Simulated scan of single mutants.
Amino acid sequence: MGNATFLDINNTSLEKVAHRSVKDEVAERVATLIASGVLSVGAKLPSERDLAATMGVSRETVRGALLILSTKGILSIVQGARTKVISGNVGNLGLSALSNGRVTDYSLEDVHEGRLMVEARLSELASTRIDAKTLDALSALIKVQEKAMNNPVNFLIADRAFHTAVYQSSGNAVLSDLAATLYSYQLDDRRRAVSKAGAIAQSIADHRLILAALVARDADALAKAMGVHERRIYDSTRELLANPTNEVKT
């Protein structure tokens, strides 16, 4: 599966629901990771090659997105060195709730209920509207996730790409953006939760069930698979917050 195929899919999805370039979308994804704390000031980003694979776009698109963040003083790009985060102030890039520093305004329970409701409706739409190219992209993203089994940050980048592709396949811009916003709350807690042994493997198994339901165009099976997955995310994050001393150090 080549990057060009991913790029075509992302262009198609964005034309339907976002009306912005893929480069801008990638810049917003990276900004979200910074705003949520997954990538803190001083953190080094994955290589352009790895970012391209985990986000499902071309290296040229990644390079352009990083340049956007660099010109805004968010990233430092030095020839021969890994790109580094130098500012946590992402301004109006990414999701507004995150950029305004309101990552923890909503409780875990509220976010959980919101995701269940929104994703249930998205399941109905996506099961009938998703196309073959997006199904291929989701399959490829699962393979990328398998390669990130021991890298929580890379896994979450690919994980977000997977969920975003499902959301955008619904063809509903409002629901897609809302679901993506809810996904991004407490993302740094999610990073710590997936650092636990077996957590990434379980998420990948959940993703396979989601993909199987999409391939079958089975809305009920998709809603169930996404609901089980969200419940697992909720339980693991709640456990982490209740017992912070048990988290895995990364």
Rank of each mutant, 00 (worst) to 15 (best):
A31N: 03
N89I: 00
G42F: 02
R63Y: 03
I77H: 06
V17R: 03
V62T: 00
T32H: 12
T71H: 08
D50Y: 05
G91I: 03
V41H: 02
Q79V: 13
D50E: 10
A52V: 07
A35G: 10
D105N: 12
V57Q: 09
A81F: 12
S36H: 01
V38P: 05
I68H: 09
R29T: 11
R49L: 10
G94R: 08
K72P: 09
T61S: 07
I77K: 02
D24F: 02
E60Y: 13
K23W: 08
V78I: 15
G88H: 08
L98R: 04
M55C: 08
S58E: 01
S96R: 15
V78H: 11
L69H: 04
R49H: 10
N100F: 12
S21T: 03
A27G: 09
A18P: 08
L93S: 05
S47L: 00
A97S: 15
M55D: 01
V26N: 00
S70E: 15
K44Q: 10
S99E: 01
V103L: 12
G94Q: 01
L98T: 03
L95K: 13
A27F: 03
S40D: 13
G73M: 05
A53P: 03
A52F: 03
A27D: 03
L45T: 06
S36K: 06
V17M: 10
T32R: 13
T32Y: 11
K44T: 12
G37E: 08
S99K: 05
R49Q: 12
V62R: 04
S76R: 15
R59T: 15
L67Q: 08
T104R: 15
G88V: 02
I74R: 04
T54Q: 00
S99A: 11
R29E: 12
Q79K: 14
E48N: 15
A65V: 05
S99P: 01
V30R: 09
Q79G: 12
R49E: 11
K72W: 04
A31E: 04
R82L: 09
A31C: 00
T54N: 07
I68C: 08
Q79L: 12
K72F: 09
A18N: 13
V78P: 08
A53T: 13
V57E: 04
A27H: 01
L67C: 10
V103A: 14
L98C: 05
V38C: 02
K84N: 06
R63Q: 07
R102S: 14
V26C: 00
S36L: 05
G56R: 03
V90G: 02
R49G: 09
G101C: 04
L75N: 05
A53M: 13
G91M: 00
G101M: 11
S96A: 15
T104M: 11
V26Q: 08
V78C: 09
L45W: 08
A43S: 14
D105T: 13
R20Q: 13
V62N: 07
H19K: 14
E28L: 10
L67G: 02
G94K: 01
G94S: 08
R102L: 15
A81Y: 13
I86P: 04
A43W: 05
T61C: 06
I34E: 07
E48L: 14
A18C: 12
